[in-house]
Simulated assay, not measured.
Amino acid sequence: MNISGNTIFLPGGTSGIGLGLAQRFAAAGNTVIVGGRRRELLDQITRDNPGIEGVYIDTADAQSIVDVSAEVQRRWPATNVLIAMAGIMRPENLHSADFLAAAEATVTTNLLGPLRLIAAFGSFLAGQQDAAIMTVSSGLAFTPLAHTPTYNATKAAIHSFTEILRLQLADTSVQVIELVPPAVQTELQGSASATNPHAMPLDAFLTEVMGLLESQPEAHEILVENVKPLRFAAVNGTYDQVVGMLAASR
């Protein structure tokens, strides 16, 4: 993926990693269309960041994805990169059936959302000369966190799906990239997670990601150093140790 000269659609870009990437990509010379559910944030982002456009989209709503994807393709026909960013992370206690509502919402947003976006954009992007789809999994796809079981599972599914997507799209112009974040200081789990001392500062994460994209334009996975202990725990023989460490950090 080229680091500049793209037109990027980034649903889930109104906060955290998504917004940070949108700003970094815009600064690198890309046209960026941010999608999100909070209209006031979209208005603020487009006002404060010249060069970033905003569209309302609810990635938990199948029809919203269909409608807004068509709108983006119509209004920005040069769109050649999709970054399926939107996600939620909720704790679940599996001792009780009460976990099910959080689990269903997580599957809808974290798994069905990206799949629906890819379905809506796949053929369109295959018609572009230089295109890319970036999925967003997590280090927890490889080494799970005890109190977020469905989050871990959806991210593991995204990893597996991305691997097969890459194989099936090998005969097209679409590059498939998986971004694998570690814990990053954002409000994904509420305000406390934004200052979690065990998480990577957002600016440091973004800087490393952009550097990897620039230095490894053909990369399949974008792995910052902080995520490698999770990504390769099974390979390194440290899986049980790292799972225990994550569980104790709760």
Rank of each mutant, 00 (worst) to 15 (best):
V227G: 08
I52C: 00
L188C: 15
E225M: 09
L145G: 06
L212A: 06
T31F: 08
G127E: 03
Q216M: 13
N30F: 03
P201I: 06
L167D: 14
T195K: 14
S138N: 12
D171L: 03
I133M: 11
E92G: 07
I88M: 11
E178F: 08
L212G: 02
I33D: 09
V180R: 06
L94I: 15
S160I: 03
Q185N: 14
L125N: 03
V32K: 10
A120Y: 07
H220Y: 15
G35Y: 09
A183M: 12
D43V: 09
K155C: 12
N80F: 02
I57E: 01
L230V: 03
A233D: 01
N30D: 11
T31W: 06
I52M: 00
F161V: 15
Q44S: 13
T162N: 14
A86L: 04
A84K: 07
A199Q: 05
L223C: 12
A84S: 14
I118Q: 01
T79K: 00
K155G: 12
Q241F: 05
P144N: 03
T172L: 01
G87M: 05
Q63N: 14
G18A: 07
G244H: 09
R38W: 08
L246H: 08
L167N: 05
N226I: 01
G122H: 11
T186M: 06
L125K: 00
I3Q: 05
V184A: 14
A120H: 02
Q175G: 04
L169C: 03
G12K: 10
V136E: 02
D43L: 12
Q216V: 10
G20Y: 03
G211L: 07
G18N: 06
